[in-house]
Design a protein around this nucleic acid. Structure first.
Length: 861
RNA sequence: GCCCGCGUGGUGGAAUGGUAGACACACGAGACUUAAAAUCUUGCGGCGGCAACGCCGUGCCGGUUCGAGUCCGGCCGCGGGCACCA
């Protein structure tokens, strides 16, 4: 008897697909197209098992759609710019370019044995000058269209290394290398005007029906549309040029509970005042310490500084409020100034108590104040949902009893009527800062000229290439700072406008720019324009996009913006405004962590291959027991990683592909276990043996042909539905069940052969090599990869009888098998005759009998 | 801090508001074997019972419903995101 040998089968069929050019995508107007795309990887150098899961899902869809008759585009590339390459160069010498391209070669070599049905001829990396040159062209077109501009923005500044830090390089407010306290510092930077599209990006979310609801909700919250009142407090004896403080509030209904005005440390007034007030200057400087993330700002202790200035309440000229500079107010949001209402905001309440400011409730619970403690009497801030009706004790517009939302609208109308400000709609979404003070990114193609200012590079001079060496010697990345900044022969150039001496922009682009249009480039990767409209017209949009939930907001929102910008600048057809028709967000692959502790009690981690598992406990080679921490995100530092290359060597690609799809729903995390991989491999061997057994059978009659065909068509139906709905794990469970049925079948050879060939077809998207091999051994015609998907035939799916569970008061007490179209009254009668039902009723007459035809019967006692 | 998601046997998980635990792992029993591995058969939520069967059970508390793992409200726990990681 022959055996399942993936090491021989897999390379053989990969070669066959390559020879037949099976997965090369060519436009073909006679066929419907299908574009399936997985988020392209960063070239770290090693693929990990999470990549295997991600690309296997895409491949299942791609191969399935192919079998359904679609002309499939399934490309692969690399998101190749970014900090790790520069970090590697800093840490161990070498050049980011060499490091990156070496990694890409390694990763392609690791991916090919997995047998993905990819069109490798379309592969590119975003660090290819052919790619980023086209990106520079897009940038210039966007600049011309007014979608790009410059303004000041804050960055993390490391005062010791004299460099800008990424958020991830700021650890507990300190620089990762220097350990120095990080400062927030302003630089002039380039921005994309994404905020101009806030409303459009928000409302268009409704049309993205095949996106996960949670991703749409996350984007909705991120864009953060709010309705509020913008108005000014008049400033008493303000410094020159400052007679008012403009504030924005989403709760104008609480205006009578205002107790202070707060401004951001970066507010123009705060900056003006700090010039003559060293204490305030020190306070502001202190506020500017620490990272720039929203999290860092929110978690910082709430602190304020009394400027000594006072403003007048808009409704009462005698009512004066103090003006504080407060560290929790963001200059980026609203006007950078607020009024605090401590009774209805916990943060304001904490602030008011700290600085001994008044607390005044404007509304109390509608149900009355029994058991309610007002904040001014020591209670918590009262913050009910905006939709809840409350009782206004210091209202000024609308009913005394109304919801917060109603009160807000009434307050806006009232204030507008009094000439106190106006109702405005604001968005939390900020413009997209794209400047990065780094080397390994797409150069921003502009030139700074003393005479002409900022001048775009001429189109014929694109791409503006990154320099590889510095006048013959390789660029040294061990020196702090941006190598482009200290590279005179690259930096100094002629002004494209006047020809005079000028300097190149030394900032490069955020790597999110690279990934915001690569999907469009895949439709024409060799075009000498950013896109080819004909190719885009045929292949776009991406029919199914697959990637991690961690990209739910930024990457996907930026891509949606870019698609719009590309439509405006004539690089994509109108229909591409929303480039991803359907989105699927897959979970991670996790693995247990094996941990012991050293003499000092610090954790020591161990690789899975160095651990023996016995009855759920883990032992090192020397017999020491290690603690097992289950299901943790794979990370090199915790050593809970498995290398796909090892898995393929040990079991073959099909086993790895099969396992990552089984057991867990694709949107959830899956835990990799050695036992699970082993079991997957055993199962594939079993399928192969069944096929081998059938091939060796004698022709002639058997028993249960019809039963096997019924089971087969049920399986075809279930698996088709499973693949269509991303229920890969459920589809695999059905394949297990059918394999068990087939292995025990005594049906005739012809029916068993038919069954095992269909089984191979159904498994082909997940385990294409095994499937192809079975197909060939059973005498299938041509490549299985070119065969049509099997169809579940109705005549094998329907049944004359139906088994109904019978419940009494919702508890199952028995079941009946009845003809499919037995009248309800007959079903009722049969149900009441069931032993368990009679017992449960204890002689009492049923009050009611609910018959759900074909599903269930419930007797109400 | 803010936003989002998830909690089902020893484990991963299945279940259009309709028989909770499909399928798989682990474990137990058995067959084959001199023995082991491999393979095959079989059992497997908890409690009680020889059994038939009964009671309990989907993180906790409450609600809607003939019927709730599923829908609603509150709580607890865990995970993800927070604009310069990709």
């Amino acid at each position: 008897m022959a055996r399942y040998t993936p090491a021989q089968i897999e390379p053989k069929w990969q070669q066959a697909w390559e020879d037949a050019r099976t997965f090369l995508a060519r436009p073909d107007p006679s066929k419907p197209k299908y574009y399936v795309l997985e988020m392209f990887p960063y070239p770290s150098g090693r693929i990990h098992i999470g990549h295997v899961r991600n690309y296997t899902m895409g491949d299942v869809i791609a191969r399935y759609k192919r079998a359904q008759g679609f002309n499939v585009l399934h490309p692969m590339g690399f998101d190749a710019f970014g900090m790790p390459a520069e970090n590697a160069a800093m840490a161990s010498g070498g050049h980011p370019k060499d490091w990156t391209y070496g990694n890409i070669d390694d990763m392609v070599a690791q991916m090919k044995p997995l047998g993905f049905g990819l069109d490798w001829s379309r592969m590119f990396a975003t660090c290819d000058p052919e790619y980023y040159g086209q990106q520079q062209r897009l940038f210039l077109d966007m600049l011309k269209a007014g979608l790009v501009y410059r303004k000041n923005a804050v960055v993390n500044w490391d005062p010791v290394d004299m460099t800008v830090l990424a958020n991830e390089q700021v650890i507990d407010g300190k620089g990762w290398r220097s350990g120095a306290d990080v400062e927030r510092r302003e630089l002039t930077q380039w921005f994309f005007k994404i905020s101009e599209f806030s409303e459009e990006l928000l409302t268009a979310l409704e049309g993205l029906e095949d996106w996960p609801a949670k991703v749409r909700l996350m984007q909705e919250n991120w864009i953060g549309r709010s309705r509020g009142l913008q108005f000014a407090f008049s400033l008493i004896d303000g410094p020159d040029g400052h007679d008012r403080v403009e504030v924005y509030t989403t709760r104008p209904d609480t205006l009578m509970g205002a107790s202070f005005v707060g401004i951001s440390p970066d507010h123009p007034l705060a900056k003006l005042l700090e010039k003559d007030n060293p204490d305030l200057a020190a306070f502001n400087a202190d506020c500017r310490k620490g990272g720039t993330t929203e999290e860092a700002l929110e978690k910082a202790e709430k602190r304020g500084f009394d400027t000594g200035l006072r403003v007048r309440h808009p409704f009462d000229a005698a009512w004066e409020l103090p003006v504080y500079v407060a560290n929790f107010i963001l200059m980026d949001y609203g006007t950078g100034a607020i009024f605090g209402c401590p009774a209805h905001d916990q943060r304001d309440l904490d602030f008011a108590r700290k600085y001994d400011l008044p607390v005044v409730s404007t509304y109390v619970p509608a149900a009355g104040e029994d058991g309610f403690t007002r904040p001014e009497a020591g209670g918590e801030a009262y913050v009910p949902p905006k939709t809840e009706k409350v009782h206004y004790v210091k209202g000024f517009a609308g009913e005394a009893l109304q919801s917060g939302a109603e009160a807000v609208e009434a307050a806006i109308a009232f204030c507008e009527g009094k000439g106190v400000g106006q109702g405005v709609t604001k968005y939390r979404l900020r413009d997209w800062g794209l400047s990065r003070q780094r080397y390994w990114g797409c150069p921003i193609p502009v030139v700074h000229c003393d005479a002409c200012g900022v001048v775009p590079e001429k189109a014929e001079n694109l791409p503006v290439r990154l320099p590889y060496d510095e006048d013959g010697t390789p660029i040294d990345f061990s020196i702090p700072g941006n190598p482009l900044d200290r590279h005179p022969s690259w930096r100094d150039c002629a002004c494209p406008s006047c020809g005079g001496p000028a300097r190149r922009e030394t900032d490069t682009m955020d790597t999110f720019v690279d990934s915001s249009w690569y999907f469009a480039r895949f439709t024409a990767p060799d075009a000498d324009t950013p896109t080819d409209m004909g190719a885009a017209e045929y292949w776009m949009n991406v029919d199914q996009y697959i990637g991690g939930i961690e990209h739910a907001i930024l990457h996907l929102l930026y891509s949606r913006f870019f698609a719009r910008a590309m439509v405006i600048t004539g690089h994509l057809p109108e229909k591409c405004k929303e480039p991803f028709d359907a989105l699927f967000t897959q979970g991670m692959v996790t693995h247990a962590i094996y941990q012991t502790r050293d003499a000092a009690g610090r954790p020591v981690y161990h690789f899975p291959e160095d651990v023996d598992l016995r009855e759920g406990r883990a032992f090192l080679k020397d017999g020491t027991e290690a603690e097992v921490i289950p299901s943790a995100k794979m990370s090199k530092s915790k050593k809970n990683v498995v290398d796909p290359v090892n898995i393929i060597d040990q079991y073959g690609a099909d086993t790895a592909r099969w396992f990552v799809l089984s057991d867990s729903p694709p949107e959830r995390d899956v835990e990799w276990t050695a036992a699970g991989a082993e079991a997957a491999n055993r199962h594939l061997g079993r399928v192969w043996s069944i096929s081998d057994r059938i091939a060796g059978m004698e022709d002639g009659p058997g028993t249960g042909d019809d039963d096997l065909l019924r089971a087969l068509h049920r399986c075809i139906f279930d698996v088709t539905q499973g693949v269509e709905s991303f229920g890969f794990n459920a589809a695999i469970a059905k394949l297990y069940a059918f394999t068990n049925t087939l292995s025990k079948s005594t049906a005739s050879k012809s029916v068993q052969r038919q069954a095992v060939m269909a089984l191979a077809q159904l498994m082909a998207p997940m385990t294409p090599h095994l499937a192809e091999d079975i197909w060939a051994r059973q005498g299938g015609e041509g490549l299985l990869a070119d065969a049509q998907w099997p169809k579940a035939e109705d005549r094998f799916l329907v049944s004359d009888t139906v088994t109904l569970p019978i419940q009494v008061n919702g508890k199952r007490r028995g079941e009946i098998t009845v003809p499919k179209d037995l009248p309800v009254s007959e079903v009722e009668k049969a149900a009441l005759n069931v032993d368990g039902v009679i017992r449960a009723l204890e002689g009492a007459a049923p009050k009611k009998v609910i018959v759900v035809p074909g599903r269930i019967v419930n007797v109400v006692a």
